[in-house]
Write a protein that binds this DNA or RNA. Sequence first.
DNA 1: GGCAAACCATACTCGTGCGTATGGTATCGG
DNA 2: CCGATACCATACGCACGAGTATGGTTTGCC
Lengths: 192, 192
Amino acid sequence: MNASSKPERTRLSAEDWENAALDLIAEQGVGALAVEALARRLGVTKGSFYWHFRTREALLLAALERWEQYGEREVIAQIEAIADPRERLPELFRRVAHELRPHRVYAALLKALDHPLVVPVMARVSQRRTEFLATAFREAGLPPPEALNRARLTYAAYVGFLQLNFTLGLPRISHEDFDAYVEHMIATLIPA
Amino acid sequence: MNASSKPERTRLSAEDWENAALDLIAEQGVGALAVEALARRLGVTKGSFYWHFRTREALLLAALERWEQYGEREVIAQIEAIADPRERLPELFRRVAHELRPHRVYAALLKALDHPLVVPVMARVSQRRTEFLATAFREAGLPPPEALNRARLTYAAYVGFLQLNFTLGLPRISHEDFDAYVEHMIATLIPA
DNA sequence: GGCAAACCATACTCGTGCGTATGGTATCGG
DNA sequence: CCGATACCATACGCACGAGTATGGTTTGCC
């Protein structure tokens, strides 16, 4: 029992701080990312932090870039591995719908679009994902201009869902209702 | 020329502060709502503010409630005035798409979902609007369970669109492309 | 025209969180 | 085993924004 019970009494690296920052952001939002709070969380003090980073913003930036790098690698790879292009979109929907961890950070960053540092990161990520969706819709048979609009619509629906059901706690949808909702999305957004 | 050139040298009421607060929120977000800044904007000092409100949070709360009250009255009334239920949804889409002012506040509040005070307000507003959409979809011929899911999907798409194209400045979509997008939404989300 | 209430200005206090200064302890190559 | 470098603790300074204290000015009303 020495994996995550006590705060791991080794010394820290910059990456440790970045990962801890992402955890904190996922749990309490960007606004809660304070250096003294993070230090307490890691069982050290500010003195440690300011050895690794020049400023609080530097940590935030590093954490965001880290997230941008290692964020969606697996999902995209898994989907592109599916042979039949017409099977990719429904599979993507269902797979994404049953994740949780990755959405937390994304939802937290959506709530923090005040902050100038997160805007460009979110813009890049959202842009890439929308384009990924657009090609998937083209491969599913939609003519290019419609594929792009459908991708925009789909990704907007994803983003909005996070806000409404994650951040706001709109009438806590049940497990079965959620599955029905996902199937409804598939039926209306993906061409037969 | 004495309507809005100089800051209106009359004395202020609580409502004046609330409206000014909403303007500021729409422009710069909830985070920028500071009492000294607002006071400067109105050409007075803090001394005035703390006569009208007990605290900064009290102002925010009052402003939010004000917005919740007088927010969507007209739109809903206009739409319900349309005789043919099947014409209501496309008309709603087009009409909402060509507004601007109301979306600014809503988008600003979406960015401020960190703040505990805005969450319940946004939850109530979003809930009501979703239900309004659901009945509209039922009136358009969708069976009740599907109507609800379609309403959720539609409203999520709206929220997501605001985030992606308003807050983030994703590739500034052109006017014609935007109209095409709206028509695409109508075609895919509204039953024939 | 004068008094009471409403409204506003000025000058503070105070908490909070960032950043700095400086000295201490662990770790590792030679 | 010893010095250099990496890592951390403690104790500060400092800016900024909320809230308070207190007194001044305007406005409505008798």
